[in-house]
């Protein structure tokens, strides 16, 4: 075994990789803990309530207490559930959520894998979560969870198409699928300005990909009890919630990189602020936008949801691609 590791990569580098992944996991867990806290606080303020304020100073330990409660709960499984798939589904849903973070460049130097096809990697892996969700819905052997799982899969697949299409404009402008190159290409002007149409389509489609308001039909409490994870409790349920919030982390990072210039400052004069602070600022803006939407928007109806994706967003994204292509060929003197 020792020989084996020394041949291509040494033991210390492997340990370094593992340590890096663990550190990222801890950061993500910290983010999720306080994202949930701020979500409840912000929505509370918007609805003229106080929000959580009992556990710890200012209620800061509320989520910690909630997670501890979840982990101590009994792990129940319905009698007629499919045993193997019931256990497999949370893993299938969570593993890709964490794996997509591997290609996100947080700053110029702070990143993990520098993949040539970074943006495609993110989109391809996030598709596997749908498999986890649909498996969970089926394995629970419950009609509500099955409907929730099917709804979720239909929604996530439909909105994946405009999501990918809206990014094509940026890829055309940059000439690369690499996320770092995309940030470098935004030195002069952030992509949100020339690609505003793409940005609008992306934000809406991302909302549906994340299963968040106004597209939270898979988890419509009033119609489906809780959707695909209704039969899950304790640690397995925590895995699903975690996957959702980790995707929010990933999507926030992706929006920051694709449209908001990543770690670049808003003006070269503000260069003295470290890049990672810029990244966190832009990222937090997106996360706040999520909470704001949740407090504002009502839920869509299932049939409206589908026709909106195929008849509204997809043509818009195609128009955006056409406009970008015409502009680029005009610029390079082909027309």
């Amino acid at each position: 075994m020792e020989q084996l590791l020394q041949q291509s990569t040494s033991l210390s580098t492997v340990m370094m990789f593992a340590a890096g992944a663990v550190v990222l996991l801890l950061i993500v867990l910290g983010f999720v803990t306080y994202a949930i806290y701020f979500e409840r606080k912000v929505i509370g303020w918007m609805q003229l309530r106080v929000g959580p304020n009992r556990v710890g100073p200012l209620g800061l330990l509320q989520t910690v207490a909630d997670v501890a409660k979840l982990l101590l709960k009994e792990d129940t499984r319905p009698k007629h559930a499919d045993k193997a798939l019931f256990a497999l589904a949370p893993v299938l849903a969570y593993a890709p959520a964490f794996a997509v973070l591997a290609v996100i460049p947080f700053t110029d130097t702070l990143h993990f894998a520098d993949l040539g096809v970074g943006i495609l990697y993110y989109i391809a892996l996030s598709g596997i979560t749908v498999l986890g969700v649909i498996t969970a819905g089926w394995a629970s052997n419950n009609k509500y969870s099955l409907i929730g799982g099917l709804r979720s899969a239909a929604q996530m697949i439909s909105y994946e198409v405009p999501l990918v299409m809206s990014v094509v404009g940026i890829i055309l402008m940059t000439g690369s699928l690499n996320l770092k190159e995309i940030v470098y290409a935004q030195q002069d002007v952030w992509n949100i300005v020339p690609q505003f149409l793409g940005f609008i389509v992306f934000i809406i489609a991302a909302q549906a990909e994340l299963n968040r308001t106004p597209f939270d039909l898979p988890e419509a409490e009033s119609e489906l009890v809780a959707g695909y994870h209704v039969e899950y409790s304790g640690f397995r349920f925590a895995m699903f919630m975690l996957a959702e919030y980790v995707y929010m982390f990933g999507m926030g990072a992706l929006v920051t990189i694709l449209f908001l210039g990543g770690w670049l400052p808003i003006h070269p004069a503000l260069d003295f602020i470290p890049p990672v602070v810029w990244f966190i600022l832009k990222f937090s803006l997106y996360v706040f936008f999520q909470f704001w939407l949740r407090a504002t928007m009502p839920r869509l109806r299932a049939d409206q949801l589908m026709s909106f994706a195929w008849k509204g967003l997809l043509p818009l994204a195609l128009v955006n691609i056409m406009l970008t292509a015409i502009f680029i060929s005009y610029q390079s003197g082909m027309m």
Partner: peptide, 14 residues
């Protein structure tokens, strides 16, 4: 991954 694991498996499940 995008075409087979994502799209086709889910289509079959559907």
């Amino acid at each position: 991954i995008l075409v087979y694991s994502g799209a086709i498996s889910i289509l079959m499940l559907f």
